[in-house]
Design a binder for these strands. Structure first.
Lengths: 133, 133
DNA sequence: CCGGATCCGCAGAGATACTG
DNA sequence: CAGTATCTCTGCGGATCCGG
């Protein structure tokens, strides 16, 4: 894992409250952004999921990125990884309480996205036409 | 602009509702993720801002990235760009109503981030210690 | 003052093949 | 089944110079 340089502990603590707000959000946004984290989190929120199940349900994800994203989410305490020492091996991932809260807290944002989805799409079309003209 | 390949209009429409939810959120997340968009949006939400003001207040941003991010936000209809044909030129950016709603809808998420900020930091420390051991 | 154009380094991510 | 390992390619983003 060559990343993980967004170290929360190193963040400035003594800034004005507004800046701090922005920083905090950015940390988390940068963690759950990227193509895959959200999708994985959604599946894991419903209950324990196995590696191969995720590989199929997340659709389009490579083995590598699935592993990396899972590790990052686990590192942030959003996922718990449980290994069953059976043959063949069995590994389950489940969302923590914190992750479920996260998902709940996202609902406002989610509804915004749904409401304005079309507006955004249209705005892009208009903009692109104006540019290419 | 070499990016902008996350074309909303090309997104699948005929999928089950849950997948659609995920896609919608992902589109927007990928738009407002990246180091700069959120900070810029915050400034612009308070009222019209000039290019140079943003360059100072966003802190750490380069001219190039400021321009690119502004263009993308404008393209998505989150920012309005107003040019005053004076000498020297004056350009103002202001958040649209949609952008202000976005910021409001983010508040739940924002509070989550504040509440769990320390938990995440601690979780990372623990994880890293276990890995390096 | 507000950008655009270009060059370039580096991390993120895909493809493929191999293991306990 | 659940990962590693490596190789490569893409494109974000910084630096720099130019223009209206």
């Amino acid at each position: 894992m060559s990343q993980g340089n967004t170290d929360v502990t190193a963040q400035a603590r003594v800034v004005d409250p507004e800046k701090l707000e922005v920083c905090t959000v950015l940390e988390v946004i940068n963690r759950i952004s990227g193509k895959w984290a959200i999708g994985i989190l959604l599946e894991a929120t419903r209950g324990p999921v196995r590696f191969t199940e995720l590989e199929r349900s997340v659709e389009g994800i490579s083995r590598r990125m699935l592993t990396l994203t899972l590790r990052n989410l686990e590192r942030d305490g959003l996922l718990v990884r449980t290994v069953y020492p059976t043959v063949p091996p069995k590994v389950e991932y489940e969302a923590t309480a914190m992750a479920k809260e996260l998902y709940a807290s996202l609902s406002g944002f989610l509804h915004w996205a749904e409401r304005h989805r079309d507006s955004i799409a249209e705005s892009r079309v208009v903009y692109d036409e104006k540019v290419s003209a």
